[in-house]
Design a binder for these strands. Structure first.
Lengths: 231, 231
DNA sequence: TCGGTAAATTAGCGTAGTCTAAGTTTACCC
DNA sequence: GGGTAAACTTAGACTACGCTAATTTACCGA
């Protein structure tokens, strides 16, 4: 009989863990992560990524479509979620238990996530009351490697007063994408809904933290998929 | 003007940190650490040590006398003490704040000590009340890289009732060293002084925790250099 | 004083991961 | 539909670190 589930294999190196995490973040729901995006995120040269991609796909952690991009396999996804859990638990622990502020904590967690044991993470999680969300509102994967998928709402449908994080832009059209980028409406941006005109009218939002206002017509607003993070 | 003190240079790799720590432990007070002892402590092959020794002496962290052994330079010693501080603070923090027992804690600290920042260590130290000793009674180096040298007393001069840790054996004579080893008297062993005969008579001790008694004549007892860790 | 042995070193190689430079492939635009 | 720019991959080199096998050195005992 083959190994049940934990077919551990050789432990992953720091680099491999970083690549998997980057690929996870870049290939949100089913998409491909491109070589150059991975290179930019990890601050390495593109050929380094090509080389690593070859190795990772040989070991079954990712699928590689040459000149297209990569996706995580189930195994790679599991490993990535494990790192994300570690990262988020560490960030939470360092801020809540050791007085870190949100500036320094990311770099610290980035280094520690490769060195901590599962046991330590679970002890930290326990000391924090087994949290399900980090302070950004992002869900923390469980120890078993499951993550709650954030529910996305179109900006056109978000209630006035809601505080949102823009997560995806639901179009491939370059003209629209360029327009959104010009408006500062790119994934990751925070905003709040300040007003909406009736009868399918435009939505007015304020960017956070700058407060800059934007008015977005209904058709475009439906393309801006957001996660609600509060009122 | 040359750099004042913190002539940091490139950050040390994990391996380098491990080598420096091993050399520190093996070359207690002015002695040399041998290639094979380092290899044994780090569980690598001897030629790997030779190679690393060459690099470390080129970068000024150690002095190498070929076929003799190595010693830390002031710079190497500083780096080693920094790692030892990290290790001991981590061990203390993990046991006192996160419920680790003394079994699992060493391996965890061994990994973490290479990943933590100075800031994190100082925060942990602060949370612990800036301790000066670890639970073994070993002194914790200060953040500035100073360590309280344990004051060693010959077993022949230790007061009856004292609890001691055997730290060094003050002879190179193989016959005596072998005898001590047979008696279980090797560095690191804990013991308590139960009795001493007058007129330069022998000292009777009990090994801790077994309680096994040993009677040691004065001449030999003077060779057993101990650190007092309580009564 | 001379071996013999144990320790140390050198030689040579392998892997992981990085880089630059040089070629391919894709995609886009007119 | 062809040309070009951007993205990607391949080629080749380098560093850190490990290993085994072979050689050199130091020391101890006869």
């Amino acid at each position: 009989m083959s190994a049940t589930i934990r077919d551990a294999g050789p432990p992953l190196t720091r680099s491999v863990e970083d690549y998997l995490k980057a690929i996870y973040h870049l290939s949100n729901q089913g998409g491909f992560a491109s070589t150059s995006d991975i290179a930019a995120m990890l601050e390495v040269a593109a050929p380094s990524v090509s080389g690593m991609v070859k190795r990772l796909s040989e070991t079954g952690l990712i699928e590689h479509v040459p000149y297209r991009g990569v996706q995580l396999t189930a195994q790679g996804r599991r490993a990535a979620l494990k790192m994300i859990r570690r990262h988020r638990i560490l960030e939470l622990y360092l801020t809540q238990q050791l007085g870190y502020d949100w500036g320094g904590v990311h770099a610290e967690a980035e280094r520690l996530e490769h060195a901590v044991s599962d046991e330590l993470i679970e002890r930290m999680a326990g000391a924090l009351g087994d949290p399900h969300y980090d302070p950004h509102g992002d869900p923390i994967p469980t120890a078993a490697g499951e993550i709650e998928e954030a529910e996305l709402v179109g900006l056109a449908d978000a209630p006035v007063g809601a505080k949102l994080e823009l997560r995806q832009v639901g179009t491939q059209d370059p003209a629209r994408l360029r327009y959104f980028a010009e408006q500062g409406l790119t994934p990751g941006v925070l905003l709040s809904v300040t007003e909406r005109q009736p009868f399918n009218g435009p939505t007015t939002i304020a960017l956070v933290p700058s407060g800059d206002p934007r008015v977005v017509g209904r058709d475009l607003a439906q393309l801006l998929l957001c996660r609600e993070i509060g009122r």
